[in-house]
Design a protein around this nucleic acid. Structure first.
Lengths: 111, 111
DNA sequence: GTAAGTAGTTACCTATTGTATACCGGTTAC
DNA sequence: GTAACCGGTATACAATAGGTAACTACTTAC
């Protein structure tokens, strides 16, 4: 049985985490960037997200240092979004959510 | 380096999880119920959530079998919300988010 | 009677999220 | 020239999330 102090601390910490990764897109973007860096249009195609939302989410995550934005002076200019070392620290959260999602889907399928 | 198939599976599973625990309240409610069952008004006081939102979130989570709702025929009637065994399977997700939240707060504090 | 506690519900409002479409400024290929 | 690619923005609109406040219906205590 956890103490009430531990419980309050847990709530506060979880609240902090939720504020950083809230919404339906951020973790999906991070999941993609876990495999390799992506360009803007690549992400819109891969995730089916509109450029407006993607732009906003990427700016949010860059502010929180979860991802980096690099402009390459190729022709045409390309912009690459990559997961930062700090963004990679979300790995445990992602894995836990992946594992739970897999089990949940199996449960739903069983009825 | 993860394969593209693994990455797609991960995205799908994470998306499933997000759909169940979305919003700013559900995980906080679950965090409270981890310690002990709560009555409706207790939760509104503990979390500072309005009865309207709490009612909606509890119904959502009951539908997903994460929590149980038990009516006690005391006077006045009391209703107790408790985490189900299935709800407890979110423990790994909660712990991962708690741990990350703690580290994130420390990082923010450092500047 | 009134006041206070129980568990919610209802109506109203704003802010955020999301979709669709078009557009801009630049480069490349034809 | 035109068309097509890049990385976004701008605009208009619909849908959802979330908050405030008042209110219902019931019981207990005074």
């Amino acid at each position: 049985m956890e103490s009430i102090q531990e419980c309050n601390k847990m709530r506060l910490a979880i609240q902090d985490t939720i504020e950083v990764i809230n919404g339906k897109w951020k973790l999906l973007i991070i999941a993609s960037l876990t495999r390799k860096p992506y360009r803007f249009k690549e992400l819109t195609r891969e995730l089916g997200i509109s450029p407006r939302m993607l732009s906003k989410e990427l700016q949010d995550m860059e502010m929180n240092k979860l991802i980096s934005r690099t402009v390459y002076e190729s022709k045409p200019v390309t912009v690459e979004y990559a997961l930062t070392d700090y963004g990679k620290t979300l790995n445990d959260v992602m894995n836990a959510m992946r594992d739970w999602g897999v089990k949940h889907r199996k449960k739903i399928m069983r009825g």
